[in-house]
Design a protein around this nucleic acid. Structure first.
Length: 268
DNA sequence: CTCCTATCCTGCGAGC
DNA sequence: TGCTCGCAGGATAGGA
């Protein structure tokens, strides 16, 4: 389930595969929409165009074409594959490249998003995003952001408007590393612990990026290979299994409708 | 404003 | 073995 490390891994993989600058000749969609409408006739008139680079913002991939910006969110089941034959059942969008290769956006659950062109300065999907986890401004802003919020800290970590790119896996893992229970009211977390949580978050994200992300069911690198950070989970999906630090069984609890995992002893 | 819930969708695994 | 059912998940709209 692509979160920041997985999206970053896909971004790097795509850059490696595509080696921009590379001309994109054609964008074909095999259905009208996913979460939002897919590119239509207006997009076709902007191609062919050269891809110059691919950036990441939160969990969004931003493909910079000379004629406009292509926005893509993998949601939970989105992936990019180089086609060697005809498109598969869930290949909703196809990119024809100047060198003859064909890249498919595959998304069985259709929760993802692909739009072209988008205006980065006005598009609500991008405007509403909070700062990147590695943004130095968070060092002072993050502890302040928690002060007035009474909701569970775990829910705040998932709020893309507050901090961009965190999903259920890394929210759980960062809270374990910081020794904070997921349902702790954010307002009760002082500046010291808030900073510790931010450091834990940055560490786990960095480690996961280095490991090529986590592969659970759907996630694949650009091209189809898997990450291996899932073997490093300390709490996520480990309900009932012993804590690797104190051997107490990991507990799970629904918070805001999302599965949350914690060690009753290490997360005080 | 803040917080919570339902919704979208398919595939898979648990349980019978 | 074969079936059903519930869960997984991110963003968002709308309700309390």
């Amino acid at each position: 389930m692509p979160e920041l490390p997985e999206v970053e891994t896909v971004r790097r993989g795509l850059l490696h595969l595509l080696a921009p600058p590379l001309e994109i000749r054609r964008l074909t969609c095999t259905r009208a929409d996913l979460r939002h409408p897919l590119p239509g006739a207006a997009a076709h008139r902007l191609l062919p165009s050269r891809l110059t680079t691919i950036r990441r913002r939160g969990k969004y991939l931003l493909w910079e074409l000379e004629s406009g910006l292509l926005l893509n969110h993998l949601s939970m089941s989105g992936s990019w594959r180089l086609l060697t034959g005809p498109p598969a059942r869930h290949d909703h969008c196809l990119l024809d490249l100047a060198d003859g290769r064909r890249l498919a956006y595959r998304d069985p659950r259709r929760f993802g998003d692909l739009a072209f062109p988008v205006d980065e300065t006005t598009d609500p999907r991008l405007c509403r995003l909070g700062p990147e986890p590695f943004d130095p401004a968070l060092d002072t802003d993050w502890p302040k952001a928690l002060r007035s919020r009474r909701t569970a800290i775990k829910s705040l970590l998932l709020d893309q408007g507050l901090i961009a790119g965190i999903g259920n896996i890394y929210a759980n893992e960062a809270l374990f590393r910081a020794g904070i229970r997921p349902h702790t009211s954010a307002a009760t977390i002082g500046p010291r612990r808030a900073r510790r949580l931010l450091l834990s978050l940055r560490t786990v994200l960095r480690e996961a990026i280095a490991a090529g992300g986590s592969t659970i069911s759907d996630f694949r690198h650009a091209g189809g290979s898997t990450g291996y950070f899932q073997h490093c989970f300390q709490v996520y999906g480990r309900s009932g299994l012993p804590c690797q630090h104190c051997a107490r069984p990991i507990r799970s609890q629904l918070i805001g409708g999302r599965a949350s995992f914690y060690c009753p002893r290490c997360q005080g």
